[in-house]
Design a protein around this nucleic acid. Structure first.
Lengths: 212, 212, 212, 212
DNA sequence: CATGAATGAGTATTCATTCAT
DNA sequence: TATGAATGAATACTCATTCAT
């Protein structure tokens, strides 16, 4: 086969991108290294030139996603013009949009096959997202919008509750009535968790289509 | 090798038990069928005499656990002498004790390898436990102890929040101070979610050692 | 399970019968001993009480069939009232009816899986049927109806040619026009092989439905 | 183990060759993939680098043989210098020589184990050889050497009769007297089938040693 | 005569990884 | 940088057969 040399960074990116797509479509365990290289059109050895193992590319893929999300969320958090409620809602919006954009439909079929990836993902979420969330909650406390004694724990709790919600929302993707109910429930529950004023948090218009 | 015949039920139980332990210790995918039979001291064929496939024993293992938990929780729910708060706390107690008893330590090392099992587990939890939890919450509403407009969603949310908590608690198993803080946080968060009276829910003495 | 004792011969017959059906439907290799016992409703061990091995029951099954056919053909051969042509045609009729009755349709799907059985069958045909056929041809020579210098070889040749024909006929089971042509071809070919008078052999009305 | 890279085509051929020999000696079903690779001295994976499954190599083996035979026969058929009788005899010569060269002795022991392969083989023979044979017969008709109303059916019939003969000839490999008789019988039978002039077809010097 | 639990050798197949070129 | 042939360990599953009861 013709040998096509590329800029190393570009090639590495290409591999990560391709792996990401395959992992999402077919699951991590179900994706063979040979699938990845075949999809790109390079040799088996090329993969191992850039990554020491299959594990390593899983890391690379996950890091890329996390960083993407974190980048967006950081922008929100650093925005001096937003109050805590706005930040909170926007952040959740980012999360849901991202999640719906990437995980919906197709991979529910493969969810079981994707367990390992999900788990790894969940770990990253916890370690990276919880602290950022906690910051927002603390800001809310200072602004008198929220009233929670345990910002970090609440952040953690809400984040996991949200993941449950997200799963449910995904399943109900075609049932607007039920979706609406879930979102209203979320309003109530989260408002209470955060000690916010009744009616100050509205999720109804969230979780819409990802704005790609 | 000497042939030791056993009562089929006994043998089946023995296999499930052994598989359970190995799955917990080394993870499902990392456990070969040959590991299971070797641990018992029977032939490979014996396994397949009782289970059609490796998948089937995963089901068996999970069902056994779920049923054990559900059995205990059902007793609580049906108890006419308990009010909703008592039921709620007792149920969570059952869950945490169970979880701590079975999952602590060892398998955190292997958690990633156990992802598939966890996922399957989570599915069962959702479908079986959420409705029971919702019943308790509804009872609490009727009794004036809780005040939630969305019992089912709240049950779901709280259950997943709890799983986050549980993970954290497990990691902190030797740090009483931090554990205490988590449990107090839980008091506040859940009390608010349920719309219960402040101070009516106390988790502090929960999550103790499993009473096996 | 309740133990049902039967007359040994009856039980043996039952096993052979069942095995025969399963072999025909699913092929010999594809039929497990456990399939046979399950179909009857007896224990695994029972099978080995009557047959030493799986090979042994293949023998039993084939012998039963061969004997059935040979019985019918013997009657024809011994019939003093028939001339060689009548015997010849009747014999082929028996064969084709038998073959069509037992092998048609279903097992063409499984033919490849049935190869071993077919082969064994072919061997029996050769050793048992060829001599009988040769006898008929010799009688025909004596009667001046046939004229062949090598009765045995001709018998052999014709028998195998017939098997080819039979395969083709089976495939053409719904195409009368083509079937007719094949049968006319057979008339010509066999007439010539036997050195019979043109028009003295007619196969057209053969290969009809088996008279079960 | 030392890693010996080869030209892929060469390696593939090597595998097919080795598989062919093992199949012939021990039978297809009785030959494990591990036997093949062990015989070559490569790793298990190497086999699956070239063939998707064990089935696939059976195909490869059979195709190679068939093509070899067909190649030789095609040359004969296309030869404008031969009349139908010469072509007919030469073709049968090719078949018998080939068959005797490859199948004799060893595999009669294992014939039963080779059934599946034989069957597959027979199918190919029918679909590929019959039409070529029929062409020769038609040419013979045109040349006034043969006189058959049903060339295709006769081709089919004769081909199968021949296979019977071949089996017999193989068994009689050391008995010249009997072989001679079989071949004379064949002269008569086939001459008649084809409607050829008496004495125009001679098989006696056929079926000799293969000229490898 | 019959049971049915237990045996265990046998095998196709996958795939992450290596390495000579 | 890149190739792609080669590696080989690892594993789920089948099934004819045995044997204690």
């Amino acid at each position: 086969m013709v040998r096509i040399s590329k800029d190393p960074d570009e090639r590495k990116s290409e591999i990560i991108e391709t792996a990401y797509n395959l992992f999402m479509t077919n699951g991590f365990e179900e994706t063979a290294v040979s699938d990845i290289v075949k999809a790109i059109g390079v040799a088996q050895g090329t993969f191992y030139y850039y990554f020491k193992s299959k594990e390593e590319i899983l890391d690379a893929v996950i890091n890329r996603i996390i960083n993407e999300i974190l980048g967006k969320i950081d922008d929100v958090i650093k925005d001096p013009a937003m109050n805590a409620i706005q930040k909170f809602i926007t952040t959740i919006d980012v999360l849901l949009k991202y999640a719906i954009g990437t995980e919906s439909l197709a991979n529910y079929v493969h969810m079981e096959k994707n367990a390992q990836m999900h788990q790894r993902f969940a770990g990253c979420i916890t370690s990276h997202l919880v602290p950022e969330f906690a910051q927002i909650i603390e800001q809310g406390n200072r602004e008198g919008l929220f009233n929670t004694s345990y910002p970090e724990e609440t952040a953690h709790f809400v984040l996991f509750g949200l993941s449950a919600l997200h799963d449910e929302l995904s399943k109900l993707i075609y049932d607007d009535q039920e979706q609406r109910k879930k979102l209203l429930a979320l309003d109530e529950i989260i408002t209470r968790c955060l000690g916010a004023k009744k009616g100050s948090l509205k999720f109804l218009d969230l979780g819409g289509k990802p704005d790609e």
